[in-house]
Simulated scan of single mutants.
Amino acid sequence: MAWKDHFITLSQRLAAHEPSLYPAEELDELDDIRIGKLSVEGFGEEEKPFALAVKSALHLFNESLDASHELSQELHTPEGSLLHGIMHRMEGDYPNAQYWLRLAGRLPFSDELGGRMQAYLKEQDLARVGSPALREKLEAMASQAVYDPASLTQAVEQQVTRSRDEGAEVMLKHLQWMELRQLLDYCYVRSGGEGGLFA
């Protein structure tokens, strides 16, 4: 089975899952093995980093943080830095996450993702978020169509370490899921995949 077939099979299953803000263990050990077996042989010099980023992103969907980290720390690209930052956010190392997110900078899909995130938050009843500090962070994110992974990380840190608000948990997990899906789709296309995965 070709890379594309393997990838689409895995991505359809894994990218439907909204990873936890603080994973305790991987979702599926067999999927972890399947992702590891995706060969990046035969990719051109420009496409190979994106193919490796695809694997790293799939590991994040599977909540296998160590496997994702092994790949992302070897990717000296904006996409690799973003994956590295998201991984550290998911493991709860927020200062390290912020470092890598700053290093990633602005990516080509930032405007599109910012608009989607803003639209999602505008549909939510932010008044149901019990923590005033967390509600304020979400309201600020809803006020502008800007993808800011640093602000998302601050909100996740507030939720995980202090607020533990049920309503905010749902929203933040969904925002992280949107972020990962956009990144996965972008890297898939840049690796040579045709069309978008989640159109």
Rank of each mutant, 00 (worst) to 15 (best):
D111H: 08
A199L: 02
G105F: 05
Y94Q: 13
A150T: 10
G196T: 14
S131C: 05
V129D: 07
P108T: 08
K173S: 05
H69Q: 12
A104V: 03
A51C: 04
Q158V: 11
Y147V: 02
A168I: 01
M178W: 07
L52H: 00
L138F: 08
D5K: 01
L65N: 00
D31F: 15
Q176T: 04
S68A: 10
D5F: 02
K4G: 00
W3K: 04
S56D: 03
S131N: 12
S72A: 15
Y120W: 03
E70N: 09
G80W: 07
R116Q: 10
P95A: 11
A150M: 04
E41S: 14
W100R: 00
P149S: 12
R162K: 10
E179I: 01
L38W: 05
A119N: 03
G114V: 05
S191A: 15
D28P: 04
R181G: 03
E112R: 08
E157C: 08
H59N: 06
V54A: 14
L175K: 14
D66M: 13
L27Y: 13
T9S: 14
L71G: 04
N96T: 14
Y188E: 08
H84C: 04
G44V: 09
P23M: 14
G105T: 05
G44N: 10
E169M: 08
Q154Y: 02
A15P: 04
F109H: 02
G44F: 11
D148A: 09
L107N: 00
L197S: 06
I33F: 11
L152T: 03
E139F: 01
M141H: 01
K173G: 06
F43P: 06
M87Q: 06
H17F: 00
L58S: 03
M171K: 06
L152Q: 03
L152S: 02
D5M: 01
S56R: 04
D5H: 01
S39Y: 10
E91R: 14
A51P: 00
M171Y: 07
P19L: 03
E74Q: 14
E25D: 12
E179A: 01
K137D: 08
Q154G: 05
E91I: 15
S110N: 11
E18G: 05
K37N: 14
D93S: 13
D165C: 03
S191H: 11
F61E: 07
L30R: 07
E29H: 02
G114H: 07
A168W: 09
W100T: 00
M141L: 05
D28E: 10
A168D: 10
K122C: 07
M178D: 08
P108V: 11
D165W: 12
L38E: 10
E46D: 12
S20I: 05
L103A: 09
D185L: 07
S68D: 04
G115I: 04
L113I: 02
G195K: 11
S39G: 09
A57G: 08
R181H: 06
I86W: 00
A51G: 06
W177K: 06
V54F: 09
E166I: 02
D28W: 15
A150W: 02
G36V: 08
P149Y: 02
H76A: 07
Y120S: 03
A15S: 15
E157A: 12
E91S: 08
